[in-house]
């Protein structure tokens, strides 16, 4: 166990009889940007909430060697979190929300906050309830990224944002927050947008961790294989979980050590690899 890391050990969570998280163990090392990829209902949000002590679960969670108890406020001296739903308080104004977090959270960094407020163009005197979904997400990002913490847990952080701000967020804002010693654990549906910044990836399906790997290593393990449709049986003999047929070709993601005569090879992205491992359609990733 590394001292400076976020460790999930054998965590299981039930909702009634439904096992949402199944014996998950995970180590998030300091200074990494880690993606969490899974279909809807795979257990991404539940895992993150277990990591924050919001839910009853079996197993243990440690931050920098300290065991996290349920509803332990000390977690938030080291961790900032953005939930998948707009968790902002509609009854406050933007100014009150910022003021509230600033005064209550000793990790608030005024310089970063001012910088982020400037680029976010938020109407400070408006009530949160009057903001658009995108504006609410911006506000949540702004207050979360203004905290000087070691770990940032982001559950679908750019949900509801337009493509321009999503790009700005991943390319600029997140860079602003990211320093060598900080860890970002991020779940997102727009995996293509974060692919370039991720260093590690975790695949989760049906509450189980399928894989935790460095992104560049993982990409080397798979490739896209394309063959004309009449030779599709050459691909099918490897039982790919997902394959597509278009423009007279069959494409499938296969292990990179597979060589098929006459095939065209391409680089697989994370979404392709994920689908190749768990099956399903691209829409659900």
């Amino acid at each position: 166990m590394t001292e400076e890391s976020y460790i999930v050990h054998n965590v299981t969570k039930y909702y009634g009889k439904f096992k949402a998280i199944d014996s998950v163990s995970l180590e998030l090392r300091q200074g990494k940007i880690i993606g969490l990829l899974g279909k809807n209902g795979a257990g991404k949000s539940t895992l993150m909430r277990c990591m924050l002590g919001f839910l009853n679960h079996s197993g243990e969670v440690y931050i920098d060697g300290n065991l996290i108890k349920r509803r332990d406020p000390k977690v938030f001296e080291k961790v900032a979190f953005i939930p998948d739903v707009s968790g902002l308080d509609d009854r406050l104004t933007v100014k009150q929300t910022i003021d509230y977090v600033k005064r209550i959270n000793p990790k608030w960094n005024e310089v970063t906050a001012n910088k982020l407020l400037e680029i976010s163009n938020l109407p400070v005197n408006k009530k949160v309830s009057q903001l658009s979904k995108g504006m609410k997400t911006k506000l949540y990002l702004m207050i979360t990224l203004s905290l000087d913490v070691n770990y940032l847990i982001l559950d679908e952080p750019t949900l509801g944002l337009d493509i321009a701000f999503r790009k700005e967020f991943f390319n600029t804002i997140l860079n602003e927050f990211y320093e060598g010693n900080k860890t970002i654990f991020i779940s997102t549906h727009q995996v293509e947008e974060v692919e370039d910044i991720l260093q590690e990836i975790v695949f989760i399906d049906k509450g189980k961790i399928l894989l935790h790997e460095e992104v560049h290593t993982l990409k080397e393990l798979f490739k896209i294989v394309s063959l004309p449709l009449e030779q599709s049986e050459k691909i099918m003999q490897y039982n790919p979980k997902v394959y597509t047929k278009n423009m007279g070709f069959m494409n499938a993601v296969l292990s990179s050590d597979i060589e098929i005569e006459g095939a065209i090879y391409g680089k697989a992205n994370l979404a392709d690899i994920f689908l190749a491992m768990v099956g399903g359609t691209n829409e659900s990733v």
């Binding site: 924050l52 919001f54 509803r71 406020p73 000390k74 977690v75 938030f76 001296e77 900032a80 979190f81 939930p83 968790g87 902002l88 308080d89 509609d90 929300t97 977090v101 209550i104 959270n105 000793p106 990790k107 949540y140």
Partner: peptide, 9 residues
């Protein structure tokens, strides 16, 4: 929105 209030130290 309780999550915002309880995500503070």
């Amino acid at each position: 929105c309780e999550i915002l209030h309880q995500s503070q130290p």
